[in-house]
Simulated assay, not measured.
Amino acid sequence: MRIGELSRRTGVPVPTIKYYVREGLLPAGRLTSPNQASYDDAHERRLRLIRALLDVGGLKVAAIADVLAAVDDPDQSVHKVLGVATDLIVPTYADEEPDAELDAELAAAREEVRELIARRGWLVDDGYPAAEALAAALAALERVGHGAFSSVLDAYADAAERVARADLAYVAGRAGLDDLVESVVVGTVLGDAVFASLRRLAQADVSARVYEGDEGDEGDEGDEGAESGSGRTTNGET
């Protein structure tokens, strides 16, 4: 296909496609004449991956180049390639001003995360970005007086394991590594949004059952008591 057709099929403007080629993100097309090049399905798949990393993953061009280098490295396992992609899209936290108390809280949170990983038997390397992000979140909870939140970490981990298995079951049917990485990036970023929304819905349901149900029962009992009292007063009975 010509570059115009590639642009129409992917929704990526021609100048942008040429920019990706210049930056080495997209292989050049096969020259069919001095001024014409032909592109194929592999170019379309790669463009889709680039756009997923850029638009969904929020990665910069340099980071996208790192992911694509891993994808194109025949010595990299699928696990390593997916690790490169997901590591780059995990939220990071800006460094704070040095503070002994904050350092102590973060150190304690890191140890708690290490214990969680060991307890769960998770095959995660030290220094994994998600582990550091979890430690930062736990340290923040401690600072705002909710350190006891760590008591539900294993319940969260149970849910996370089920979601992770569902994630990988979804991407398992993808044929090419480009498609696999694209699915993981899109699934991780948008899947986080889906899971957060499902969590809110479940919280609303549980809250209604636990709290509104109690209030309703108390209200019914109060109404019954009022009716009984009113009847006794009207009839003059005790």
Score class of each variant (00 low, 15 high):
D72S: 05
V194A: 10
L47D: 07
V78M: 13
H146M: 13
L102T: 13
L141K: 07
L168C: 07
I17C: 10
G213E: 11
D214I: 14
V14R: 01
E215Q: 15
R51N: 11
E142R: 14
G147F: 01
L190R: 03
L201D: 08
A70M: 00
A118T: 08
P91G: 05
P13D: 01
D73W: 02
V185M: 00
E142C: 06
I50D: 06
E212M: 13
E111M: 11
L198Q: 08
V67A: 05
S183L: 01
R120A: 13
V144C: 14
A63N: 08
G219N: 14
R22D: 12
A135V: 02
V152G: 06
L134H: 01
E101I: 05
G229F: 14
D178R: 03
A94I: 06
V81M: 01
V67T: 08
G4S: 09
T92N: 05
R9Q: 04
R51W: 00
E132D: 12
Q36V: 12
T234H: 13
D55K: 02
T10V: 05
G176Y: 06
L82E: 01
E215F: 08
K18I: 07
R209D: 14
L88T: 11
V78G: 10
A108H: 00
R8F: 01
E5M: 02
T32N: 01
W122Q: 10
E115F: 02
A166I: 02
R200G: 01
R110I: 05
R200F: 05
L116D: 09
E237F: 09
A136Q: 07
A135S: 04
E224G: 08
A100M: 06
D154K: 04
E224R: 11
E112D: 14
Q76S: 15
A100G: 00
E227K: 10
L54N: 15
P98V: 02
V206I: 15
L25R: 05
V184Q: 08
L88N: 11
D103V: 00
D72L: 10
V152M: 11
V113P: 05
V21K: 06
V163H: 13
E215G: 12
A85E: 09
T233E: 15
A52Y: 06
A65R: 15
V113G: 03
R162L: 12
E96G: 15
R45N: 11
D154A: 12
R119G: 15
R9T: 01
A63H: 09
E221H: 03
S228N: 14
L134N: 06
A65C: 06
L6F: 04
L177K: 07
T92D: 01
L53Y: 00
D179L: 00
A159T: 09
G4E: 12
S151W: 04
L141V: 06
I3P: 07
L190V: 07
V124C: 01
